[in-house]
Write a protein that binds this DNA or RNA. Sequence first.
DNA 1: TTAGTTTTGTTCAAAAATCAACAAAACGAG
DNA 2: CTCGTTTTGTTGATTTTTGAACAAAACTAA
Lengths: 181, 181
Amino acid sequence: MSKVDRRILKSQEAIKKAIIELMSEKNFDDITIQDISDRANVNRGTIYLHYQDKYDLLDKLIEEHINEMRGICTWACEMDWSDATVVLFEYFERNYLFFSTMLASKGAPSFRSRFLEFLIEEFKDEVNLTDEKNRGLNEDVMLRFMGTAYVGTVEWWIMNGMPHPPHVMANQVGILLERIV
Amino acid sequence: MSKVDRRILKSQEAIKKAIIELMSEKNFDDITIQDISDRANVNRGTIYLHYQDKYDLLDKLIEEHINEMRGICTWACEMDWSDATVVLFEYFERNYLFFSTMLASKGAPSFRSRFLEFLIEEFKDEVNLTDEKNRGLNEDVMLRFMGTAYVGTVEWWIMNGMPHPPHVMANQVGILLERIV
DNA sequence: TTAGTTTTGTTCAAAAATCAACAAAACGAG
DNA sequence: CTCGTTTTGTTGATTTTTGAACAAAACTAA
């Protein structure tokens, strides 16, 4: 865990913040590297020091959030399922601009499917097919069912300006998930 | 007007913002260089690259604001006095944390007098002693009178959380100043 | 006082970011 | 298509910032 030079962190933070802001304002295709460097207040060349191009930047940004969420899930594994969900919803809230932009219709269409894929992966360890209750149920169907429900609910919550606090959402979703699994 | 490297601007901005924040939280004497660099998220050595010590930093910070205000005054000289005052009050509002910290009882005692000194300097060009109306009036007394009134009013406005919008304050102060001068 | 801790101010080599310049690619209007 | 403009991705020389280290000074508590 060799710590990273703070200049790298600062530059990358500024660049990532910039592209999220810009994506919330205009179409991804219309964003130039110059736009990003202007907004981030870094030299244009600095962006190329960290990313191949704007697609690579978007990929890395998404993947970072996925990893962050994976970290939260494994870290919160010891807790109750409902408690773990609270932490996730607080993460969504904290990164509101990212999720609202990415889940918006004009947003990155790749993110929704990547998000779903991640959730299914996480649910995999939670479903128990050997359980009496789940006799005759197909795993892929169950995972898909839970995953889309989760994504869809988060999407609704975010796109409607987070009408309930995270812990309420987490509680509701937690109850519903418990019933399924 | 050779433009300054953006890294210098960013570092100095972060450092200045840091010391203002810290001064609003604790006594100036209790603030260490390490505190400032931590808050600004820059290396401790970077501060010494730009300032002698924390006293020099505070001096430069104050003097920068004085210069900024002087710029506004000369730039707004062509306008009506009342309009110029609006721009100044908007400047106070924009830099609320700085002014509230500096004018607070625990703040930098040097700032209040420096501020007053600046205002008197600016008023000097505005008073006309040859005017019939001002016969028998002493210039120093007039300037002191106007200056302390101005500082005191700004101080009241800032320390009370800016109860009126800048243009209202500017209008009131403008009217009162017109009556005096 | 003394010993132990914190803070200061400075040094160094290394890393990152900067600006300016460039050719190539992509784009858009006529 | 063609010309002119914009954007891209890369280069190199220079500047700023970094982290780590250090001795000296200042502070604290016993």
